[in-house]
Amino acid sequence: MYKPISILPALFSIAAIMAGAAPATAQEFPERALTAIVPFAPGGSTDIMARSIAAVAEAQLKQNVIVKNVAGGNGSIGAKEVQDKRPDGYTVLVAAENLATYRVMGVSQLSFADFEPIILLAREVPVLVTTPDSRWKTVNDLIKETKEKPDQVKIATTGPTGISGIVATILGTKFNMVPFKSAGEIVTAVLGGHTDVATVGLIAAADYVKAGKLKVLAVVDGKALPAHPEWPALGQVMPEYNKQLPWGPFYGVWVKKGTPAPIVAKLKDAFSKAAADPKFVESVTKKEMLPLNLMGKDAVDYADAFSSKTAWLLYDGGAAKTSPADLGIARR
């Protein structure tokens, strides 16, 4: 039944893999397949982003980029896995803004400071939605009511660290925050009348708005979206919120700190070219996201500013017990 002869080559190939390649020099990099770790389950927005960029980056790197989902702990388990690997550039992290929340929430000790950004790809714009038959015509009406009757208006969130939870904190008024598991569940909760309003990334709501089943009260951003000028921007109708805006999820590619500079440079080159690929650009536009394309110091600054803003919002909103000040995160 078993033929040892046919097994030997397989064993050799495995042995070759086990032995591992000697540390690559930058000239040769990459000489084997890369692993892109996605710290969320397959099918989520980070996963889709990773699979889209991996497919175009392969052509640039002339190597396979294997997407591996390491879900759990709001993304901290996957981030930890990248930290546990050697900083040789063969393991990249395709992640989202969540890294900013781990330390204040006590989930993990990791933060953006432990990673070196290759590129920040795109950001998502949150929209505040309700049903078309709702009693609020504008976002001002809604905010007025939450101030008059605190804790009565139900906002669907994905927990305090999710988009909706943080936007509710930005709005600074008292909502009854009803937590759900995913953006999809949030939208259903509003459609089914189980909650009154919700904030989701535009992609999760766009089709419902088009079909007339949801209404956009405000785009949570400083300016109206070029593609949808008819929706009011929060920063324009209520300028007092401008100091907190823009706030929203973003997606990017990182490697472990300590990866040799020439390898980082090669990765930056490959991923920036991949991000400019028309196919990728189209996928970003189709997802109703805004391209960021930030690298180097710009990327670090963007993530730092975001981290500080988010950490303080979580602390001020009461969701986080650890003060950002104790972690050395300055208020900006």
Binding site: M105, V107, T158, A319
Partner: peptide, 9 residues
């Protein structure tokens, strides 16, 4: 594990 509702372990 992570409590989805509080966002804390």
């Amino acid at each position: 594990g992570l409590d989805l509702i509080t966002g804390m372990p």
